[in-house]
């Protein structure tokens, strides 16, 4: 009765939530449940027959080295990009947050420009920039005498992941920068004034005054950046197609290839790909839960310190 009462009191608010709920149901919840359903079937996506295999696809995945390699590459990509992206953008944000810097708006715009450029365009342009045939990056390295032969950045398994990581960090640096700038806006001017009176500046100001204040934001930025770093399908497809020889095949490429793009003309495995998607989704969910837990503990610790 109490629930009904609440519903009646807030009926207008719930009504306003309905369109969002319907859309989320159609485009978020339904695909999640559909993927779980398909993951339990041996199904190519072509035929009407779906053979129920229970957890068979998951068991096969656990024994599939190509899957684990792709999984590992996704984690390597995450670990390679997020700390770098967060650290560089934090330094840039602190510099650009200085009100004395005359051209800070210009620099912010320049750093943000790649964010609004379509990923596919970025990917294609960078393949030309990194090309060993007349590519400007190789041209520069050769002119500086740092290498004697052009480097095939995207054609070697040793260099392909660092190259893609570099392009990703460059592309999304601007968005993390905006997050940090927003966080820095929360530091009261009085804090800076007090620090100045105490002759606290430079790295001491950053480490002992500013960073502790914006620390709670770091967890949110870390979470957002981590989830984003696991969604790199368009960039990798446009730059390397997952190659050479699986060298940049992260989980999304693995799922796509298995579900739709068997490159030898053999039948796709939509059920198997769905299982990989569910498993990967579960890992992401776990990661998010861990970070939420860490955020909660940090908040509690901060509250404890204040008390």
């Amino acid at each position: 009765m109490r629930v009904l009462g609440t519903l009646r009191v807030h009926r207008f608010h719930y009504l306003m939530m309905l369109p969002g709920l319907v859309l989320a149901g159609m485009f978020v919840f339904y695909p999640i449940f559909a993927a779980m359903f398909y993951a339990m079937h041996d199904w190519s996506g072509f035929t009407a027959q779906k053979i129920f295999v229970g957890f068979g696809n998951f068991l096969d995945l656990f024994l599939d080295p190509i899957f684990w390699n792709a999984f590992g590459r996704s984690i390597v990509f995450l670990v390679g990009t997020v700390p770098l992206q967060m650290a560089i953008s934090l330094v840039l944000a602190m510099v650009l947050n200085m009100q004395l810097l005359k051209l800070s708006t210009f620099f912010r715009t320049m750093i943000f420009l790649p964010v609004v450029t379509p990923v596919a365009v970025i990917g294609i342009v960078w393949t030309f920039l990194l090309s060993p045939f007349n590519g400007p990056v190789n041209g520069l390295l050769l002119d500086l005498g740092l290498v004697s032969q052009p480097i095939d950045f995207l054609g070697s398994t040793q260099t392909v992941m660092p190259s893609v990581v570099g392009v990703y960090v460059w592309k999304w640096l601007g968005i993390t920068l905006i997050y940090w700038l927003a966080a820095l806006q929360t530091v009261p001017d009085e804090v800076y004034d007090a620090a100045r009176l105490d002759n606290c500046k430079g790295h001491r100001l950053a480490f002992y005054v500013v960073l502790p204040i914006i620390k709670p934001f770091a967890l949110a930025i870390l979470l957002i950046s981590s989830v984003a770093a696991l969604n790199v399908f368009p960039l990798i497809m446009s730059m390397t197609n997952g190659g050479p020889f699986f060298g940049s095949e992260v989980m999304e490429i693995f799922i796509y290839r298995t579900a739709f793009a068997a490159d030898d003309g053999s039948i796709p495995q939509l059920g198997y790909a769905a299982a990989a998607g569910v498993l990967f989704g579960a890992v992401l969910l776990g990661l998010t839960a861990l970070q939420a837990l860490a955020a909660r503990r940090t908040r509690m610790a901060t509250a404890g310190t204040k008390a």
């Binding site: 599939d64 190509i66 050479p244 699986f246 490159d263 030898d264 039948i267």
Partner: peptide
């Protein structure tokens, strides 16, 4: 319809 080629297939092996 039942055939699923190996992941490391002919084309990939030559490429590799």
């Amino acid at each position: 319809a039942a055939y699923v080629a190996p992941d490391v297939n002919f084309a990939r092996t030559v490429q590799g």
